[in-house]
């Protein structure tokens, strides 16, 4: 015999079977979600087209709209990376890697101490310095192009990848200082005080108190700096020639000369985009906090 007390009471948020109840959604909410999906798909269409075409043979790539059924091939990538086109992308990819990675490391080496000093304020009027950093981001970049070109010409650094390394470092430094400052602000002052009470020196404090809290922030900052440097086109186009040209510059030339071979060009575009896509998705969660200069947590 089963008494009524044998069954456990079912919470209101669960169905009789015990599964969590679906949250009730209004019809307008559903329409919104659906609309968001439609616009989201529209957003991704160009990228999808690029990825699909890059995997087609040239004849299949020429059909429009691109057929999904066409047999996939890596011929486009082989044509791009191979010497088939008479040029090879490897030097430009190496240049981009040098410029982005080196400048990112330099930015970290310069911005972390600066942001640290600026966020604990041992000097009055410190915020002025912070806003000076920020204000340099208001300059129209195009306006700086010519002076930097003339400067590079006079010191013989045109078509030299190290000029771009230095330029990208200073280009990303202001934003990196602000980002690092926002991440450092998450270190509780009480923890710093406690460390100093316990007699920890600067190195010890940085190692044991600050580093663990700000590590994710440092990672996000470096990924964002990497993306900006890798993607930069305007200065790279003007300041480099055949020796130091970066991957985006190479791609622009490749599109001009090989534009009719869509599969090959799409493969090139995918190859040039891949590093920043990986970096971008790795940084996705911290992207907004960093780029809004800490306005959003």
């Amino acid at each position: 015999m089963t008494s009524i007390t044998d069954t456990a009471p079912v919470p209101a948020t669960r169905t009789a079977a015990g599964a969590p109840r679906e949250k009730r959604r209004s019809p307008s909410g559903l329409v919104l979600t659906l609309l968001a999906w439609v616009v989201g798909v529209l957003f991704v269409l160009p990228v999808l087209w690029m990825a699909l075409t890059s995997l087609h043979s040239e004849p299949a790539a020429a059909t429009n709209p691109p057929s999904i059924a066409a047999p996939p091939t890596l011929q486009g990538y082989r044509d791009f990376f191979g010497a088939g086109a008479g040029t090879t992308p490897w030097p430009s990819l190496a240049n981009s890697l040098t410029a982005s990675v080196t400048s990112t490391i330099l930015v970290l080496l310069l911005s972390i101490p600066a942001a640290y000093a600026l966020s604990i304020k041992p000097v009055r009027k410190w915020t002025d310095v912070l806003f000076f950093f920020l204000s340099t981001k208001m300059l129209p970049v195009v306006a700086g192009l010519l002076p930097i070109y003339l400067f590079a010409q006079s010191v013989g650094l045109l078509d030299n990848i190290w000029l771009l390394v230095l330029f990208y470092t200073s280009m990303n430094l202001p934003i990196a200082v602000w980002m690092m400052r926002s991440f450092l602000a998450e270190v509780p002052v009480e923890m710093l005080e406690a460390a100093s009470m316990d007699g920890a020196g600067l190195t010890r404090t940085l190692q044991s108190v600050v580093a663990p809290v700000v590590m994710p922030g440092i990672a996000a900052t470096s990924l964002i700096c990497f993306i900006f440097s890798w993607n930069e086109l305007l200065f790279a186009r003007v300041l480099t020639g055949t020796v130091a040209q970066t991957a985006p510059v190479y791609l622009t030339g490749f599109v001009t000369s090989q534009g009719l071979f869509l599969a090959k060009v799409c493969a090139a575009a995918v190859a040039v985009s891949l590093p920043v896509l990986i970096a971008g998705f790795a940084a996705q969660d911290k992207l907004v906090q960093g780029l809004s200069l800490g306005a959003v947590k």
């Binding site: 989201g40 991704v44 160009p46 690029m50 993607n231 622009t252 599109v255 575009a269 971008g280 998705f281």
Partner: peptide, 18 residues
């Protein structure tokens, strides 16, 4: 978010070509 983010991350040389 990741899908929409694609457009934001891609290099300008790539999006211009697209």
């Amino acid at each position: 978010e990741a899908l929409v983010l694609l457009a934001w991350i891609l290099p300008s040389s790539v999006v211009a070509f697209l």
